[in-house]
Design a protein around this nucleic acid. Structure first.
Lengths: 361, 361
DNA sequence: GCCCTTTGGGAAAGCGTTTTCGTACCGCCA
DNA sequence: TGGCGGTACGAAAACGCTTTCCCAAAGGGC
């Protein structure tokens, strides 16, 4: 009887040992079922009991194991969030909104940045599937068909921004590009511009095509036939914007304004213009798309088309949540429509040489 | 005998039903242990058997359940990553690096942005604990003591950037602020500046204090006694930078150069200067800190002090991984030292009115 | 006072894996 | 041929929790 390490006569738990609801149950002198019920706030447990349980939980600083919980309940309370490029400020702003809403609703999120690499995207999705996400929001402006099929097969609720197939279990957030872009073109036209260039995103992306289409349509609505040389492909990056502007500058029929597919592109354009000694908006007007935070402090502050990150995040989350939590697919079938709106700052003005331009001086 | 839904006589599995290694085992005519071993590439399994198992797995497109795996193995393969503000471009760049390394090593990461709110931070940590993260990288430039104790108690490996207690199980990435800041001050002094202002971060942050100390020390090394009015507190945001510059502009003893605690601040400063008609670097020189991507395309491009995000991400991950994977704490005790380095661009020049300034013209 | 209903709580069966332990089988040497 | 070591596989016990099922006790109506 020198040493007797049987668990029975060892009430002195020094915060060591492993901690689970069984331990709590023992210390509170209740069954593990009661502990579980208490933690999950099942109303049938007696207040007295509940207090006893909570006291022990707090004293031991017990944290339940989500994995075990997920395993048995079949609910991981995890959503995946896939973005194109986390270093593009548009996405962190979106992520922030999504995370906030998710946490409020008891979900955790797994974030991955695909960097436009389909293989990488495929890996991300695979990893998310392994973690048993209950749904994934794909905010990547482009996805390949086979991947999509693979996902659809698993019946994981999905939400896409802008593009995606119209199947049950899949929601698509439609973005009304045309509204904002028409406003931008009209704004430019009202200032007297006719030669309005467009720097697109990577053309394999559906969103890039939509934005280009909106530009073309808006130009036509203003009675302008765009010169093909005004349309140049960018890649949504700073560098791509600068390169695009360089091409534009080499054209004979030089545009007096340039509309960009996103703000990073616009900032690249602004920079190239600065480098070549052109003044914005005096020599040339520039409009961006997204309205990322730093667009307010470019020089000059950027006129841009806003697309609310928070609205997108909210819609995406709602779509996912309703698919997960309501068995009847009807509720999940809501149409989500994201609006876009022109924000006029100081990168747009009258084209050089027009009367308005002279009058302004 | 009209309907007989007993599971026994239903060998026709149509990809419906639930899928687990048991199903795989049945279909491949092996035990579940063998399936598990095959998936985990345990070398003792016969090639023949392995192929049989893999064939079934591929045919059914089976994905193992990480939660169950984690539950029994005790390894969640999850790290937490806590950042101050995901909308500050410094962090997405860091996150990207961290994610990449983590994924390469079979880990997943849970990202949270605290937005400088201690309560929020506490919640984030709690959630991470519930998910049973194996370690957390705290890149928040500031943490409260009680929280830290709570964490330390759980024996979750931790890595801090810049500041944190020196305890076993906790690594701290030391940043050599002084090197870069001294270079910056010397660069300015060599150009002829003496009145060098400093816009700090929020002073409750240890990192802000360190940077300020490095500034003061560097000034002294250059034989300059900083005027207290040159030192103003910012908050690491665009708006904070602009506000700080406004204060600076109101001083009698106007500085000819301003050194900022991060790039967002510097961009705010640049913008305020632009708004008040001052020219950079002709009227005043500006230096940032971080070298975020857009610092290359500000107008003018920002001279700044680089702190490698990738290096930080790598060091943080390594610290965590070695703590988790090597039982002997010695390996985890490595010192991590992050270097800083001045990058000279175009936001710095001779102070107005000096001979060099005139000569340049 | 008896029976039926309601309420609160316990026992135990999983959830999908890993892993330990045990066993069957094969080949080798004596 | 008998014994032995080693290898490849299977059975079953966890992992920490939820949830169903069931039972005991209390309450209420006649």
């Amino acid at each position: 009887m020198t040493e007797n390490p049987t668990p029975e006569n060892q009430p002195q738990n020094d915060a060591s040992e492993r901690m689970d609801i069984r331990t709590i149950a023992r210390l509170a002198n209740v069954s593990i079922a009661t502990v579980s019920r208490t933690i999950n706030r099942v109303p049938t447990v007696n207040t007295k009991m509940a207090k006893r349980v909570w006291d022990v939980i707090e004293k031991l600083d017990f944290v339940p194991n989500t994995q075990a919980r997920a395993l048995v309940s079949g609910r991981s309370k995890l959503f995946g969030l896939l973005v194109s490029e986390i270093t593009n400020p548009f996405f962190p702003e979106l992520i922030q909104g999504f995370e906030e809403i998710a946490v409020e609703n008891g979900y955790e999120i797994l974030i991955s940045s695909t960097n436009h690499d389909p293989k990488r995207m495929s890996h991300c999705i695979r990893r998310m599937l392994e973690r048993k996400v209950e749904g994934v929001a794909i905010m990547t402006f482009g996805i390949e068909e086979p991947l999509l099929d693979q996902l659809a097969k698993r019946k994981v609720p999905l939400v896409f921004i802008d593009v995606g197939p119209d199947r049950p279990g899949i929601s698509v957030l439609k973005v009304d590009y045309h509204h904002g872009i028409r406003q931008a073109v009209q704004h430019l036209a009202a200032l007297g511009h006719r030669k309005i260039a467009f720097v697109s995103g990577p053309m394999q992306l559906h969103s890039a095509q939509s934005r280009l289409a909106a530009y073309t349509r808006s130009m036509n609505e203003c009675g302008i036939v765009p010169d093909p040389s005004w349309i140049v492909e960018g890649d949504h990056t700073l560098e791509g914007g600068a390169a695009a502007m360089e091409k534009l500058l080499a054209q004979e029929n030089l545009a007096t304004a340039v509309l960009c597919s996103n703000d990073m592109t616009a900032i690249g354009v602004l920079h190239k213009l600065y480098r070549t000694g052109k003044r914005v908006p005096d020599d040339i007007s520039v409009i961006g798309f997204d309205d990322i935070h730093i667009a307010e402090v470019t020089m000059p502050p950027l006129t841009t088309i806003q697309m609310s990150r928070f609205e997108i995040a909210k819609a995406a989350f709602d779509a996912l949540q309703s698919q997960v939590e309501s068995p009847n697919a009807l509720i999940g079938k809501r149409e989500f429509n994201i609006k876009t709106e022109l924000i006029v700052r100081e990168s747009t003005s009258y084209p050089r040489g027009t009367m308005e331009h002279l009058r302004k001086k």
